[in-house]
């Protein structure tokens, strides 16, 4: 594998981040997020290529990549729906939201829907407990989700 795995845009964006820090490895999370912005997830090839750019070993970068809830090491849909399953949202019925979304899309948690549009994942507290239950749909926070979660989130 070599750095050609990444597109010129990805390399440029990662290099721009590197210039902001005294040490290349500090860009690890941001570089993985840049790859995801372009490809939705981080493949083994991309991981090795990013490690090369950051002067890290693939194992070091893998230890970072697998640590975080928002770095995906397998393909995900165009929009990832993260529904909060922490305590207040749980109390107010978030489990049912996850179940309904999965049933509607005919997927298990973490799977991609057949049309490649969605992946449903639980996430920890999104910091909007006064509007529980909540979900993050792509980058956007959805508040006060009701029994009609499928319509509210998927718009259908």
């Amino acid at each position: 594998m070599n750095e050609q795995t990444l597109s010129p845009e990805e390399i440029q964006e990662i290099n721009a981040e590197i210039s902001r820090y005294p040490d290349k490895a500090a860009v690890a999370i941001e570089a993985l997020k840049i790859v995801q912005k372009h490809r939705r997830w981080v493949s083994d090839d991309c991981l090795v290529a990013v490690a090369g750019l950051l002067a890290m070993s693939p194992a070091q970068l893998e230890a970072v990549a697998t640590f975080y809830n928002l770095i995906y090491r397998q393909p995900v849909g165009k929009t990832v729906i993260h529904y909060c399953n922490s305590v207040t949202c749980w109390m107010l019925g978030s489990d049912r939201i996850g179940e309904r979304l999965c049933r509607h899309l005919n997927v298990d948690l973490g799977e991609m829907s057949a049309d490649g549009e969605y992946t449903v994942l639980p996430i920890v507290c999104l910091g909007a407990c006064d509007h529980a239950p909540v979900a993050m749909v792509g980058d956007e926070l959805r508040l006060d989700i009701t029994e009609d979660a499928v319509n509210e989130i998927l718009g259908r």
Partner: peptide
């Protein structure tokens, strides 16, 4: 890095 469940102040 506010992530303590039930906490929504720093946001």
């Amino acid at each position: 890095d506010e992530m303590e469940p039930g906490t929504f102040k720093d946001k």
